[in-house]
């Protein structure tokens, strides 16, 4: 479990231009959960993500990953092994000349035996369905494939948590689907906890829990169908709601018996079949 208690973070502390990025955040993320974090630019999403594997340390408050405090210097590497990160730009995080080498990079650093390394790389490639590309050069892959390699690199370390900071922002719809399907599979089949930062409400709608950040605070939190019905609050926070939910709300207001908690096209089609 990741436990965040009264977390505050200030950039440029003790300087004139200090900025309060996180303000008294408390949150628990249980093993196997799929949490998405949304919020407008500058709301503190990435700052929060960077706290989960000691890239940033709290100005106030504490974070524990499996009981280890991120402020404990002796635990940094153990925490980083547990919490894998995938960033937005696929081109900035691949380092080796072949896909296989890239996935093995982290393992080499922690000194696992060659046999174990081969096993893990093979397993990770299998999970993200990239086996046939194991000898390819990463720069020749599509954006979606590159992100899958980055994900494989993280899970090869046997991380139990995967933090993804807008991993699909630079991908086209096909690549986006590929990444989302991979993440859902990791969550369901490998029981890896997912913390997913996104601007796309349709993506957030696929998670179990949505956390909405605003100016460094948690503004809303709950199951997606609960969060996305709070249209007024979301609009005030400069966020969208998924098209289908907005349509459901409008039709509901016009008196059609359609649940305003509708999140998926399929549900909407079923509702509408009764009418048209």
């Amino acid at each position: 479990m990741i436990k965040i208690k009264n977390l505050g973070y200030i950039y440029h502390l003790h300087k004139k231009n200090q900025v309060k990025a996180l303000d008294n955040i408390s949150l628990e993320i249980k093993r196997g959960d799929f949490v998405s974090i949304i919020g407008s630019n500058g709301s503190g999403k990435s700052t929060l993500a960077k706290h989960l594997n000691c890239l940033l340390l709290p100005t106030s408050g504490n974070i524990w990953v499996n009981g280890m405090n991120t402020k404990d210097k002796d635990k940094v590497w153990a925490i980083r092994q547990k919490v894998g990160m995938v960033f937005q730009n696929p081109d900035n995080q691949l380092v080796a000349t072949t896909v296989e080498d890239d996935i093995a990079f982290g393992l080499e650093n922690i000194g696992v035996s060659e046999r174990v390394m081969k096993e893990r790389v093979h397993w990770a490639l299998q999970v993200v369905e990239m086996e046939e590309y194991k000898n390819s050069e990463p720069h020749l892959l599509s954006g979606g494939q590159k992100q899958k390699v980055a994900i494989a690199g993280a899970i090869a370390m046997h991380s139990s948590y995967l933090v993804l900071d807008e991993p699909t922002a630079m991908l086209d719809p096909h690549g986006r689907r590929e990444v989302m399907d991979t993440i859902k599979k990791l969550n369901k089949e490998e029981n890896i906890t997912i913390i997913y930062i996104t601007h796309l409400m349709e993506e957030a709608a696929e998670s179990n829990r949505v956390v909405v950040l605003d100016k460094g605070k948690i503004a809303l939190m709950g199951r997606p169908e609960k969060v996305f019905t709070q249209v007024e609050t979301l609009k005030k926070l400069k966020l969208d709601i998924p098209q289908i939910t907005e349509l459901a709300l409008r039709l509901n207001q016009k008196g059609l018996d359609i649940s305003p908690h509708t999140l998926k096209v399929e549900e909407m089609v079923d509702h509408l079949c009764l009418y048209v």
Binding site: D172, P173, H174, R177, P242, Q243, I244, L247, V265
Partner: peptide, 10 residues
């Protein structure tokens, strides 16, 4: 591989 907006798909 372009996909449609949700409402169009509906």
């Amino acid at each position: 591989g372009l996909g449609l907006p949700q409402v169009t798909r509906c």
